[in-house]
């Protein structure tokens, strides 16, 4: 985020100018006073301008959660479904839960629709706050269910890999899904995971690791997402 410095007669003036310049309320700015400035003697001798450094304050996840909820609710109004959105600021992301009639319409094939909603909401939020805030959109506990299926899949595939001693690739997957596969197999020393392919065709390849005669070479293994 950009940092700007402003010099004015007094600290208050400088803050005012900063707010006008950035078109933001004071609460959203992080202000650091470099020099307070002094009006000198009779305003003639030793006049020093006040100098401040202004940074955009990292928006709290609570604020972002509120805004995200508003945006998502607005979008969903136009989908002919009764929905309620719940927002929750979690430790490392904003979690939005859509409560609906459970038709799966909002999930779509392989979570397509849900991902689209999540993507658009995070784009709008990052535009609004000028920085990226991780947002997760969920409905009917889909994310947790998906995580479980993917973990199962990862374990099954790794078993196959160990048996066949040949690398196996998963189908094309989103970054989120790939991450789960990588994380599931992270602690398994007998396989190694890597993402391959471009764009929408990126997939995870699981390789067998030859353990005989090698002293734990996979410690510095790359975690490609």
């Amino acid at each position: 985020m950009s940092v700007i410095e402003i010099e004015e007669k007094s600290v208050e003036d400088a803050i005012k100018v900063a707010c006008e310049k950035l078109k933001l309320p004071r609460e959203m700015l992080e202000i650091e006073i470099i020099s307070k400035g002094s009006s000198g003697i009779f305003g003639i001798v030793g006049v020093k301008k006040a100098k401040i450094r202004v940074k955009l304050k990292a928006p709290s996840y609570e604020t972002a959660a509120e805004k995200a909820k508003e945006i998502l609710t607005k979008i969903l109004e136009y989908v002919n479904l009764p929905t309620v959105v719940e927002a929750e600021a979690r430790q490392d992301h904003v979690y939005l839960n859509i409560i609906s009639n459970g038709s799966g319409l909002l999930i779509g094939k392989k979570g397509q629709t849900l991902s689209a909603l999540q993507y658009l909401v995070s784009r709008m939020i990052s535009k609004e706050f000028g920085q990226n805030i991780p947002i997760v959109v969920d409905t009917e506990n889909y994310r947790a269910r998906r995580e479980k299926t993917l973990q199962e899949l990862a374990k099954q595939l790794s078993k196959k890999v160990k048996k066949a001693k040949k690398p196996i690739a998963t189908g094309p997957m989103s970054a989120q899904d790939r991450r789960i596969i990588h994380l599931t197999l992270k602690d398994d020393p007998s396989v190694r995971t890597k993402s391959k392919g471009e764009g929408n065709m990126r997939r995870v390849v699981i390789y067998p690791v030859k353990t005989a005669g090698r002293n734990q070479k996979n410690n510095g293994r790359r975690q490609n997402r």
Binding site: I75, Y78, V79, N80, L81, L105, L106, G108, Q112, T113, S115, A116, L117, Y119, L120, R123, G199
Partner: peptide
């Protein structure tokens, strides 16, 4: 959007909404 990502997402949501109708 980059590589049509926004457009793709809009179409996906549009399709979901249209299916309902």
């Amino acid at each position: 959007g980059r590589e049509g990502r926004n457009a793709h997402a809009i179409r996906t949501i549009l399709n979901a909404a249209a299916t309902k109708l």
